[in-house]
């Protein structure tokens, strides 16, 4: 794929001496939203951590917009190649909402105007975050914290957005809000790789899905082929 933002070739990675994912190859095109689905323990988070440079030991190759990031440490991958919304949000709870957001824009620190523009775009997408900007992030609800986590990722203005189970632990209303925000990001032409267990959410947001099981990609489909509820997919792989 010539316009691939993310290109992974035969990637194996894991923790310690044990590989969790084996020979994975996948891609995300420019402006495309792709979901990585699979049951618990399938290795979805490991894929994201590998892309982000948070796992050192690995084989294969990862390229983001043509740049080989396979051996890059996380702080260099974060220089615009990719940004991550981690599972469980993992905000810096000892800091305010605005501080969390501004830290996300660390690579733009010499360009205050750019930081302000990014901050405005986050507040436009999540008005509730602007209302809480001076509060400690620990004082926010789970849904609000997830908005801040997505906002922190947006502040990086990365080539590729990585989201790890953003719906996890959220109330249904908060999931709806978050889904709308992800759809807007996709409409803005952002390239997204979304790890999810909720097939309905993935179908609403993404153009394509990969199914991961036991560390291997076992299927790939366009979401249009899966119907509105993805029942066939759930029955086949995710039970």
């Amino acid at each position: 794929m010539t316009d691939a933002v993310l290109q992974i070739e035969t990637l194996s990675a894991g923790y310690g001496r044990f590989d969790v994912i084996h020979d994975i190859s996948m891609s995300v095109a420019n402006g495309e939203a792709v979901a990585l689905l699979g049951p618990n323990g399938a290795g979805k988070t490991t894929v994201l951590r590998s892309i982000m440079g948070l796992i050192r030991h690995r084989r294969g190759a990862i390229r983001i917009a043509g740049t080989d990031v396979t051996k890059m440490p996380a702080h260099r991958v974060a220089k615009g190649h990719a940004a991550l919304v981690p599972e469980g949000r993992r905000l810096f709870l000892n800091q305010t909402v605005e501080d969390n957001l501004r830290l996300g824009a660390m690579r733009h620190r010499r360009n205050p105007q750019k930081v302000q523009e990014l901050l405005d775009s986050v507040f436009e997408l999540f008005p509730v975050v602007e209302r809480h900007r001076h509060r400690p992030s620990s004082a926010l609800s789970g849904g609000e914290q997830q908005m801040v986590a997505i906002g922190r990722m947006m502040m990086n203005d990365p080539t590729l957005m990585l989201l790890d189970e953003p719906s996890l632990g959220l109330a249904p209303l908060a999931i709806d809000d978050m889904t709308r925000a992800l759809v807007k990001l996709r409409q803005q032409g952002r390239s997204i790789l979304l790890v999810e267990q909720r097939v309905d959410l993935a179908l609403k947001v993404c153009d394509r899905i990969y199914v991961l099981s036991d560390g291997r990609i076992i299927d790939e489909k366009r979401t249009g082929e899966l119907g509105d509820d993805g029942r066939a997919l759930i029955d086949a792989y995710l039970g």
Binding site: H75, L103, G104
Partner: peptide, 22 residues
């Protein structure tokens, strides 16, 4: 900002590096 990055590293070094902190 330097101090706040330090606080971020103190709170969660993995995520701090994922936002660009060396």
């Amino acid at each position: 900002l330097f101090g706040k990055i330090g606080m971020a590293i103190s709170s969660d070094p993995d995520i701090a590096s994922a936002i660009g902190a060396n």
